[in-house]
C-alpha cells in the first residue's frame, strides 16, 4: 500500500493539519510519502522530511504553486497520483479546494472529512451536520480522502529526516490568478490548534461588546471563536466561525458565551473535551452538550469570570 499525503504549508512551515493527516495515513497503513508543492518552499520541504513515520518527501517547487491555486495543484497531484493507492489531504479550505479536482481527474468518488479508519477501504464520516455518522466503504481502486484534522492526533517530528526527491512541474492552465490575501494577524493561538477557545454568539450584540470575549480569551491564552449569527451580524470576521460550514474545533476547553447552540454550531465544537455554556436562556440547546452550564447575564458573568481565572 502506498499513500500520498498532500502537505498544507505556507512555503515556510508545514501546518499542523499536515501532521494530523499523516496520522490518518499511518492508520491506513503502508508507505507514506508527503508532497510539498510550493514556491521557494525548501524550508517547508525540509521540515516535512522530519515528520515521523513517513518514507519520503516529494518536493515540487515553482512559482505557479506559490498560492496553491486549485487548477495547477490539482493537475500536479493527479499527475503524481499514479503508483499511489491513496491520496490524502486535510479537510481544511486548502484540501477541500483542490482535492475534488484530483478525484475527478482520476475518476474516483472522494471520501470527504473522515473521522476514523475502520479498515483500509472503510471510513467513518459525519453527515447532516454531524447528526449522523456514516460508515462508508470505497469501491474505487484508488482512494481520495480528506481528513478531519481534529479526529486524528498530530504526528510527531523526529530528529532524523527522510529523502527529499524533486518532482516535475505540470504546465499551468493559466486560467486563474491570485490577487491578494487578507489574513488576520493575531497574537492569539490559531482557532483549529488552540487548547482553549472562547466563543461568542449573537447575544453579544455588537463588535464593541465582543471585547469582553477577547479579554477572557487573552486571560486564558485562548483563541476566539464565534457562531454564524455573530459573524453574519458583523461582530467578528468570517474566519472566527465555528460550525458545520466554518471551522471544526476540538479543544480541551470550549467556552460558549451567548450562543444558543444550533445544530450547525454544535457540529463544529461538540467533540471538545470540556464544554462550558453561559447563556441567559435556560432552555438553550447548548446546555444539552455542556459539561458546565451557567444561566445568567453574560455581561455580568464574563467580566467576573475574566477576573477570577
Amino acid at each position: 500500500m502506498s499513500i500520498l499525503v498532500v502537505a498544507e504549508h505556507d512555503n515556510n512551515e508545514i501546518k499542523g493539519s499536515t501532521l494530523n493527516t499523516v496520522t490518518a495515513a499511518s492508520e491506513i497503513g503502508g508507505d507514506v510519502s508527503v508532497l510539498v508543492a510550493g514556491s521557494e518552499s525548501s524550508s517547508a520541504a525540509e521540515q516535512a522530511s522530519k515528520i515521523s513515520g513517513i518514507s519520503s518527501v516529494i518536493h515540487v517547487d515553482d512559482p505557479i504553486y506559490k498560492n496553491f491555486l486549485a487548477e495547477d495543484l490539482g493537475n500536479l497531484v493527479a499527475s503524481i497520483a499514479e503508483g499511489f493507492n491513496y491520496i490524502l489531504a486535510p479537510a481544511t479550505t486548502f484540501g477541500k479546494n483542490f482535492l475534488p479536482r484530483v478525484a475527478a481527474k482520476l475518476d474516483v468518488q472522494q471520501i470527504s472529512d473522515i473521522i476514523s479508519v475502520e479498515d483500509p477501504d472503510t471510513f467513518k464520516r459525519p453527515i447532516y451536520a454531524g447528526s449522523c455518522i456514516a460508515t462508508v466503504k470505497s469501491n474505487d481502486s484508488v482512494k481520495v480522502i480528506t481528513v478531519r484534522t481534529t479526529a486524528f492526533d498530530a504526528s510527531l517530528m523526529s530528529d532524523s529526516s527522510v529523502t527529499v526527491n524533486p518532482g516535475d512541474v505540470v504546465d499551468s492552465l493559466n486560467n486563474s490568478s491570485f490577487v491578494n490575501d487578507e489574513i488576520a494577524e493575531s497574537d492569539r493561538p490559531e482557532l483549529t490548534a488552540a487548547d482553549v477557545i472562547v466563543s461568542g454568539g449573537r447575544a453579544l450584540g455588537s463588535s464593541e461588546n465582543f471585547k469582553i470575549i477577547e479579554a477572557l480569551a487573552d486571560k486564558l491564552g485562548a483563541a476566539v471563536g464565534a457562531s454564524r449569527a455573530a459573524v453574519d451580524a458583523g461582530y467578528v470576521p468570517n474566519d472566527y466561525q465555528v460550525g458545520q460550514t466554518g471551522k471544526i474545533v476540538a479543544p480541551s476547553l470550549y467556552i460558549a458565551i451567548g450562543i444558543s447552540g444550533a445544530i450547525q454550531h454544535l457540529a463544529g465544537m461538540k467533540d471538545s473535551k470540556i464544554i462550558v455554556a453561559i447563556n441567559r436562556d435556560e432552555d438553550a440547546p447548548i446546555f444539552q452538550v455542556a459539561d458546565y452550564g451557567l444561566v445568567g447575564d453574560l455581561f455580568e458573568a464574563v467580566p467576573e469570570l475574566t477576573d477570577s481565572v
Binding site: 455518522i133 460508515t135 461538540k270 464544554i275 446546555f287 455542556a290
Partner: peptide, 21 residues
Amino acid sequence: DRTSILSVELPPTREAGVMVD
C-alpha cells in the same frame, strides 16, 4: 455508485453535564 454505506448511526452522546449557580 463508487461507495457503499455500510451503516448510519447516531454520534456518541455527551454525558449530561451539571448546572452551576
